[in-house]
């Protein structure tokens, strides 16, 4: 066990990513503030990225993993920009960014 702990390998990184993923999930599920939800999404994307980079370091995957990681960062940036613009627009309409208060559409 100690031996295992002392040599951080693929599994260790994956465990970090798993914890990060579940924290992101937690934020997404439990927060009502839109920006908090978006931050949770960023955590999820980062955890996926850790997986990619870890696989590229420890398995045959090679640099492909890093490449995908790079693109994911780009996508995350694009998504965050659009998401925050939409949140701003929501704030202008509703004067709130609380998911519970923004609920015209129901049924």
């Amino acid at each position: 066990m100690i031996q295992w702990l002392a040599e951080p390998g693929l599994t260790h990184f994956l465990i970090v990513s798993a914890i990060l993923f579940s924290l992101g999930l937690m934020a997404v599920l439990s927060k009502r503030n839109v920006i908090m939800v978006l931050m949770g999404v960023e955590l999820i994307l980062n955890s996926a990225n850790i997986n990619m980079i870890a696989f590229s370091r420890f398995t045959d995957l090679g640099l492909d993993g890093q490449m995908i990681g790079l693109f994911i960062i780009i996508i995350a940036a694009a998504e965050a920009a659009v998401a925050l613009a939409i949140v701003l627009n929501i704030y202008n309409r509703f004067n709130s960014i609380n998911l519970d208060e923004i609920s015209l559409l129901k049924g």
Partner: peptide, 13 residues
């Protein structure tokens, strides 16, 4: 920020 359904969310996570 408000936190809702803390229990189910934590259990799931």
């Amino acid at each position: 920020t408000i936190t809702v359904n803390l229990v189910p969310a934590s259990i799931l996570s």
